[in-house]
Write a protein that binds this DNA or RNA. Structure first.
Lengths: 337, 337
DNA sequence: GGTTAGCACTCGACATGCCTAAGTGCTAAC
DNA sequence: GTTAGCACTTAGGCATGTCGAGTGCTAACC
């Protein structure tokens, strides 16, 4: 029994099953692939693969389907990343280049990626720890409520309403704004937290409380903007692949809606040597995704922000990985300097 | 055959069917409701109701289920809005009062509403045609790219990157900003479009092109912020009520994802005398929602922005309508002055 | 030792036939 | 206008039988 052929059999099983959605048997295998041996031999190989936990039979007399472990081996050792077709590349390029806004870019990206892969696409907002403070604005909404706006030179705008804890007038707010902006304009967002105490300390005693509240607000904005939001598209694709989620797509939708879950998942995934991270079935920390796989990769500076897709474990990994990687590259280029 | 009893029969059918999800027959009807007549009489009434297109039989020997038209009559004439339970009221109040940010308020609102009704909840961002221009900021990102930020006194911030069509320096941008802000600060957003040409006309000839582009950008922001975004929660509820969407929930998810569709739908719905708008099944202009109903109402000033839910036509309308109305009221109160 | 042919066995998928329960529509009597 | 009774329709459950795909095992083969 030769090792290489066993891997070849696994590859064939994965490919056929992904293609047909039906358990694949030994006979069909020798017919569709020219393996050079008889079905009986394949049966022996399959029994070995089953012993190793790489494939499993849904019931006694059915073909085999890959397990999570089988997919993992397939992704890690067997599959080659398929290059995208020329039209696909062109579509990515033209579509993404038409965008102006950051929101617009990300929106187009997820739509594109979901269409390309027929899965749910997600993209995380880019981090901006490297960005500089471009502008700070305080807007008095009510005597004690101030809208704090932080504009970074990267083009990102963050805002939040905070309670300053004391009544303020328009002039005071304007003065505070000038003070903060003068001291902090041009500061790196990542250094904002260290620079803030000095500004607060320098304010007149009467405004100290408000200044403190405002500083906290700004710090929160700089912080939260790091890994806050994500955009999503193509949830309807989940419904189409209804059959692939035996129980229901409910838990999957819940996971997608709980952005915290998805963001943690994305950030915890480690990219492999080819620059793409894959998390398969029960490898996912979240139970609702036990029958789903996530394919993701980083983009932008440090590849810190993530873009990826989510679909059933039974997916075409090589093609999907290629699409995710290609989109991430174009995205990096567009957002790059 | 008495008219009042016929309506009573329809009411009973709707209530039983919503409760049991099974076609309801004449015999079960007289047992569960004390109608004071025999099943044969009910059968005659049901035949009449079927002739009028208010109910229908899935197959020859099954009970009847309400048609869209039947639900419509039920909602319009028969049902009484159920008041919420005291705990529910308290939950709404405490949950919504803990919020600070506008984003936060809307986010909590949809989550709450989706839990309350077990449906998908949507809420549209409040309009700000009445709001005033609080601040305008131009940030030079690249020689020809400027980030335009419009801050309204309502606390809403809109942003967009535009191509100004000519190379600009930092000083020029600062000058333009001062010019625009000076001329437009305090203007109503709804009057912005009228006020802009004068500002453009007053700029030096060398900056005219950029000023024009910036004006267009600002106009777009004031415009788009009207009915731009919406927030959504509870899509997982769709999966739970799988059975109620015979074909698939795919088209429904598509509609929800195409925010334009939902926003138009919401804004086109007319509220009835009780202040709630209901759109049932095929009444919806969008084909994908042929088996869904939308219950919505306005909130905030002029009730211009909408909040509501989407679910299967087979839903508990009275309770749902009560929940939507209650949440809208609390929302108005929180966002009010 | 690895490979192959052959065979008994298992089990899901499908078709058939039968029966029951639910519900209807109609008619004739009240 | 209401009711009782009855013939009729049909979905769904259940038992049964058949078919085909696929497996595991054994014995023979290279």
């Amino acid at each position: 029994m030769s090792e290489p052929r066993k891997l070849e059999v696994l590859r064939a099983i994965v490919e056929d099953y992904v293609h047909s959605r039906e358990p694949v048997g030994s006979k069909a295998l020798v017919e569709r692939h020219h393996l050079g041996v008889s079905s009986a031999t394949i049966r022996n190989d399959m029994a070995a693969l089953e012993d190793e936990g790489l494939i499993t039979a849904p019931h006694t007399s059915a073909g085999r389907i890959p397990t999570d472990k089988g997919y993992r081996l397939f992704v890690d050792q067997i599959s080659a990343v398929k290059p995208l077709s020329a039209p696909e590349r062109r579509a990515i390029q033209t579509l993404l280049e038409g965008a102006d806004d950051l929101d617009d870019v990300l929106d187009r990206t997820v739509r594109l990626l979901s269409q390309l892969t027929n899965q749910v696409a997600v993209v995380q907002y880019p981090h901006l720890s490297r960005a500089l403070v471009r502008h700070i604005e305080f807007v008095l909404l009510a005597p004690r409520k101030v809208l704090v706006v932080l504009i970074a030179n990267s083009g990102k705008v963050e805002q939040r309403v905070i309670d300053v804890g004391q009544d303020l007038g328009d002039e005071t707010v304007a003065a505070l704004r000038t003070r903060f902006l003068g001291a902090l304009g041009g500061t790196r967002l990542s250094h904002l937290a260290q620079a803030l105490p000095a500004v607060v300390a320098a304010t007149p005693h009467a405004q100290r409380q408000a200044a403190h509240a405002l500083a906290l607000g700004l710090e929160g904005l700089a912080q939260s903007s790091r890994e806050d939001r994500m955009v999503m598209a193509g949830t309807a694709n989940l419904a189409r692949s209804n059959v692939d989620f035996p129980l229901s797509i409910g838990p999957v939708l819940e996971a997608l809606e709980e952005q915290v879950v998805m963001l943690r998942l994305l950030s915890e995934m480690a990219q492999d040597h080819r620059g793409v991270a894959v998390s398969i079935g029960r490898e996912n920390p979240y139970d609702g995704l036990a029958e789903a796989s996530v394919v993701a990769t980083g983009y932008g500076p440090d590849s810190a922000a993530k873009v990826g897709i989510l679909g059933p474990t039974r997916m075409d990994y090589p093609t999907t990985m290629a699409a995710v990687r290609a989109v991430a590259r174009y995205l990096s280029r567009i957002l790059g300097p």
